[in-house]
Design a protein around this nucleic acid. Structure first.
Lengths: 246, 246
DNA sequence: CGTAGTGTTGAGTCAAGTCAATGGTTGTGG
DNA sequence: CCACAACCATTGACTTGACTCAACACTACG
């Protein structure tokens, strides 16, 4: 049973969320030459300072995009789910200014950057799909800034939990927005600009207020709507509503 | 003396900072059909929720990219200088998730989104130049997140002042990194996630430490290198070093 | 000369950080 | 199978950076 599931299938599904792909388009993506390997927890798929000549696609497992300050403090910029291409951000740049790291053991497919760019020039729909994906990533960064810059700890954490729930739901990896949190409390802190200790207290607070329920890393939301309101979570920035045709 | 200076000249210059453009490339950009108008301070060039069908290019004056939270708090995401195209972020999206506002009276040229995209498909160099510009904007958002998420108020403000100085210097609008700050202290606060009062105290602190000097809105840096170190300001994220050829 | 927008300063409060210790879970190797 | 180590989560006590509220000063402009 070779290749029970094609490594790039999730990428196709992910791109299809926002741009309608024809059978030919899908085939063209699946035909991209690629390698396929497992990467251990903590492994880097994109390295700051390196010249990116290939684009990683998450097949399984989660990853984070991160940047380290001069004092060695780590800021998490985004969380990537299976199906995400983690290197669109570097497709046209000479040198990566940040890195992408696996949150757990997982599989990654690698596609040559040149192959990606060639396919984009050949196929306008795929080009658009990639561009949309890139711009949605950027939109997420904007919301991330708003979150860190303007919200208090409880809302900040809540917003991150909502984003994860919503995105996992969209790709079928959550049920009723319940999911297993792929991050430690330290990582939640690095993502939201809050210390580990305060993340812990804030999670407890959210639980006491009945906004979340926890068992191990499993989070569930007794009242998803109230949670969304508390978190000030709007889905507009994820641009998921429609298949934009032009 | 009609059109003493072509409204799109600064855009050409701005794109040329990172991608080498031939004479034909430059001419093609200058030939883009466009309108040209003045926009008053506070005027919106991009509106959240609107469908962007045209792309604004700053001819003169400064603008900010911003997002408003559900509680009405404003977060500034980026500062745009003359020559910046402020709508690349929406070129492939159906609806803007944020807005761009003039910081002062200024001139803006508008190019139809379709014309831009058509030119990009026709001319691979221009396509690359636009993509690079888009990705550098995204890189700036990442650094912005690091700044707000991991640095203290003095370093945060210092970093913003460094970024402005460096970018203004790059387009010839600063002398020795000295420039007239285009923002009020309230705006500095909204950009860094700090209250107005604390911005004021922090600026005083930076001045007392000899990192900056102020006269009105004019800022200068007695020791630019020390300032950069304090701010933990690296220029890598601006990707300005080279004309990347591939 | 009055008004509106900025900038500045002081006093008091609070959200979040720091430091430090303890508990729980998982995995591993003797 | 147990003991230890490593990692993660939790809690308490104390500190502090930043916020809030409030007043006042400066400047530009009609």
């Amino acid at each position: 049973m070779l290749l029970a599931v094609h490594p790039l299938r999730r990428l196709v599904a992910s791109l299809s969320l926002r741009v309608k792909l024809s059978g030919d388009d899908r085939a063209a993506i699946l035909d991209l030459p690629h390698t396929h390997s497992t990467v251990a927890q903590g492994g880097l798929i994109v390295r700051e300072g390196h010249i990116p000549d290939r684009c990683g696609v998450l097949v399984s497992g989660f990853a984070i995009r991160q940047k380290i300050s001069g004092e060695g403090r780590r800021q998490i910029l985004a969380v990537h789910l299976p199906g995400d291409a983690v290197d669109f951000q570097n497709l046209y740049l000479a040198e990566s200014d940040h890195s992408v790291q696996m949150l757990m053991d997982g599989e990654v497919a690698f596609v040559a950057r040149s192959a990606f760019r060639q396919l984009m020039r050949q196929n306008e729909t795929i080009e658009r799909a990639v561009m949309v994906q890139m711009l949605v990533e950027t939109a997420s960064l904007r919301e991330w800034i708003l979150n860190i810059g303007q919200r208090r700890a409880p809302e900040r954490i809540a917003h991150l939990l909502c984003e994860l729930g919503f995105r996992l739901e969209a790709i079928g990896l959550a049920e009723e927005y319940n999911y297993e949190l792929p991050m430690t409390q330290e990582e939640l802190g690095d993502a939201t600009g809050i210390t580990t200790v305060h993340v812990n207290r804030t999670l407890r607070l959210l639980e006491e207020k009945g906004m979340i329920r926890r068992r191990r890393r499993l989070v569930s939301f007794p009242d998803w709507q109230r949670m969304r309101e508390l978190a000030d979570f709007s889905t507009r920035y994820l641009h998921l509503d429609i298949h934009s045709e032009q």
